[in-house]
């Protein structure tokens, strides 16, 4: 059985896993980090999004063994010193959720959007959230939350992106 060593939320972890173990299974079942959800299990819905080496990926479509040596951040790793991450705070403030199942993936995707694009406008947010499905909200409050979270993270109002 392969041994995988990776950093999860700043902590080095090692586990013996079957090669077919998905990253999300390792996170949930071996490390008991159950904030990352499995929704569709077919790389469509985005409930399982985590960051691997700083990039948002679908952890249901990544083997744990592919992450040997990688730096993984899950929803549990965003809050610092008992204080919510600005994007988490924005989701709470703008009620960017109803049932909450998609929320961990939404927030990880949202932080990734801001990391790549900075302060983003509504149209960009809607396009960038293509890989995250929410069955409750109709997305309105999620988009508002991401916009506010992006402003809080960057300290900037959204840059109007040139129409393509």
């Amino acid at each position: 059985m392969p041994t995988v060593t990776l950093t999860v939320n700043g902590r080095s972890v090692t586990a013996d896993v079957d090669a077919r173990t998905l990253l999300v299974q390792m996170l949930r079942e071996n490390l008991h980090l159950t904030g990352t959800h499995v929704g569709c299990d077919t790389s469509q819905c985005g409930a399982c999004v985590v960051h691997v080496d700083g990039k948002a990926v679908k952890s249901c479509t990544t083997f744990a063994v592919q992450c040997q040596g990688a730096e993984v951040v899950t929803i549990e790793g965003l809050a610092q010193d008992g204080k919510l991450h600005p994007m988490q705070e924005a989701f709470r403030e703008h009620h960017g959720l109803q049932c909450g199942f998609c929320t961990p993936g939404m927030i990880m995707a949202a932080v990734d959007i801001v990391n790549r694009k900075g302060a983003v406008d509504e149209a960009t947010i809607r396009e960038e959230l293509e890989g995250n499905i929410c069955r409750c909200t109709g997305y309105h409050n999620i988009v508002k939350a991401v916009e506010a979270g992006a402003q809080a993270m960057t300290g900037k109002a959204p840059a109007r992106q040139a129409a393509e």
């Binding site: 999004v49 990039k55 990544t62 995707a109």
Partner: peptide, 9 residues
Amino acid sequence: IGDPHVRHR
């Protein structure tokens, strides 16, 4: 192609 997360892999 796909969505942002798919494009990262």
